[in-house]
Amino acid sequence: DGSTKELLSLTGTVPVNYRGNVYNIPICLWLLDTYPYNPPICFVKPTSAMMIKTGKHVDANGKIYLPYLHEWKPPQSELLGLIQVMIVVFGEEPPVFSRPTT
């Protein structure tokens, strides 16, 4: 409708253990003005040296889809739980891979 809002975003990395190594997956969480009643909007923020691996939980824009977000119910659902779910999910299916250095 053309309206704009100023939102709070949290940017950082999530420590993920994949095949025995720990990687710091860069993510950004956008908190809506209706937070915590609505889940944050989450993105993977690949650096220039990374490429997004689309899959069940990540689309081509890096947007993250998780049951935890879809079934968000405060106060049980909160950021710490969300990040813990990301650590598990990304440990099985990393959302980003480093670009092959030609």
Partner: peptide
């Protein structure tokens, strides 16, 4: 100091 972002090497299929 926040950790430096890193990602696994692509798995060669």
């Amino acid at each position: 100091k926040s950790p430096t972002p890193s990602a696994p090497a692509p798995v060669s299929l």
